[in-house]
């Protein structure tokens, strides 16, 4: 379990409490500036909260050595940075750094899982956006973490590549890995996540099964838009009619 207990971070998070379960996909949603990426960074141990604590199992995250933490939590930042244009094989192998080994087996397995073997010797500059996103996710998988925390991993991808990456993440969740994603696209969240946390101005506005946490009234209240879901569960689309008359966009 990865649990946030009453997390407070100066003007960015205000008393967020949530216990995340492994083996499922949890989406963190919210308008711009709601604190989604900040919460993900706190859960990954990259930001130290002013108040509260994050527990990984029974252990406070702050008590773990950074390398121990890195072995258990894989973090994928939003910016797909790759300096020096290292070949995909070496890029994926960076996931083994916390373990201090070359992890040939794990690197090969991660590349195979994400269909990267044909590009193994290619530099990321010669990859498409989708291939690059898969290579960066493979880097996280090579570390064999218990948790995968990804900040808007689908943001720069087209529909096909979004679904492809979600398929890979679902496979990891089914294997018992805890997957936590910051998602802007509410339709992707409601159709593909098992659970959704909705943040509003640093506080938890909703937390639960996606159909409940992203119910129309929550969307109207938090995002300030007049909207309704259409379609069946698992194939929902959000129809936005406009801004709510009473709401000012932040």
């Amino acid at each position: 379990m990865l649990a946030a207990r009453n997390i407070t971070l100066a003007e960015r998070l205000d008393g967020v409490t949530a216990a995340l379960e492994p083996g499922c996909i949890t989406a963190i949603c919210g308008p711009n500036g709601a604190g989604k990426s900040t919460l993900l960074s706190v859960l990954a141990g990259l930001l130290t909260p002013n108040g509260g604590e994050v527990l990984l199992g029974d252990t406070p995250l702050a008590a773990l050595h950074p390398r121990q933490r890195a072995k258990r939590i894989g973090y994928l930042p939003q910016e797909p940075v790759v300096a020096w244009d290292v070949a995909v094989r070496n890029l994926v192998a960076l996931g083994r750094l916390p373990h201090g080994d070359r992890g040939r087996r794990q690197v090969a397995a991660a590349m195979e899982t994400l269909d990267l073997l044909p590009f193994a010797d290619r530099p990321p500059s010669q990859l498409s956006g989708g291939e690059r996103a898969r290579a960066l996710l493979a880097r996280v998988l090579a570390g064999e973490p218990e948790w995968i925390l990804a900040d808007e991993p689908l943001a720069a991808l087209d529909l096909g590549h979004q679904l492809d990456l979600l398929r890979h993440l679902r496979r990891e969740a089914e294997a018992g890995i805890g997957v936590v994603l910051v998602l802007h696209d509410l339709a992707l969240a409601i159709n593909h996540a098992d659970r959704v946390l909705v943040l509003d101005r640093g506080s938890l506005a909703a937390d639960g099964a996606c159909e409940d946490a992203l119910a129309t009234e929550v969307v109207e209240r938090v995002w300030g838009v007049s909207a309704r879901w259409i379609g069946d569960p698992g194939a929902r689309a959000l129809v936005v009619r406009g801004c709510s008359p009473s709401t000012k966009l932040r």
Binding site: A44, A70, I73, Y75, P77, A83
Partner: peptide, 10 residues
């Protein structure tokens, strides 16, 4: 190589 945030996560 992966940027500051990813490096810290490693």
């Amino acid at each position: 190589i992966l940027g500051d945030a990813a490096a810290r996560s490693l």
